[in-house]
Design a protein around this nucleic acid. Sequence first.
DNA 1: ACATTAAGTTAGACACAGCTAACTTGTAAT
DNA 2: ATTACAAGTTAGCTGTGTCTAACTTAATGT
Lengths: 148, 148
Amino acid sequence: MTEIRTNDENGPRPAEARAERFQAVREAHRNELAEDYVELIAELIAQFGEARPVDLAARMGVTAPTVAKTLDRLAREGLVARAPYRSVFLTPDGARLAESCLRRHEIVVRFLIRLGLDPETAEKDAEGIEHHVSDRTLELFRSFAECS
Amino acid sequence: MTEIRTNDENGPRPAEARAERFQAVREAHRNELAEDYVELIAELIAQFGEARPVDLAARMGVTAPTVAKTLDRLAREGLVARAPYRSVFLTPDGARLAESCLRRHEIVVRFLIRLGLDPETAEKDAEGIEHHVSDRTLELFRSFAECS
DNA sequence: ACATTAAGTTAGACACAGCTAACTTGTAAT
DNA sequence: ATTACAAGTTAGCTGTGTCTAACTTAATGT
């Protein structure tokens, strides 16, 4: 064998573009859990006046220690405030994030339903999709969902 | 204080439904990386006749050891076949998975473009979205993208 | 006031996905 | 045939997210 080498005779441009896309997804990934938590916390506070770890665990489908560890991280990142054996609350930053996540979630769900999906599946798919939708796409979703 | 307890007087139904949704997302999550790899490997093979770790690393935006570890896992799971210091190939299972991922990816991209998104952003968003789209939703995307 | 029980915490394990540093292998060019 | 360099591997570190088991705290009911 003599040639075949490099596999990049087309230049590394497309390879790099791709790498950037994957890196962006990994980045989104890191924020997903935080977003899901603050979103849930905001809803629980709206509904019950407080968000207790036990309720978070039930709704996230994980055990109490997992919730505790995650809340520690969120506290470290300044998104939630907590005291031992107490309910969890959102910091201003956390509340802001929750607000935008809820909005985003709502738009995605409404969009999917408008597309023709049943509400249950829409809710399910939205949970996975919402974290990966750019602002431009979200805007398109919103217009489509609201078009008469 | 006397009452306020439980926070679940509405019954645990909605909480459980939610937990299931999150669990589904975590499940999808676990498969994401595997899907991205087999998809990329299939493309490289189609383009160059082989998929080399160095090309995977460049396109995934990670280092060579990370690729090696991931490929080990994929081999363990029966999706790829490899020999030391050689290129990677797909098993029949891996090829099937790659096929369906490529199809899915294409549909999502075309759908987003039809919605009015620029191709570059479509490509970027699709990378994150494609793993979280149910079959029903994918079908709706397909119809929408292909509607005259 | 105290005992019971539910909620929360701590400790420790595992798997995964990323990294750097150092080593080995294989290929290509001289 | 040798050497030099690119590709691949191995070892070992980090941080995250999950778990179980065992412990502590707080609230409820009698």
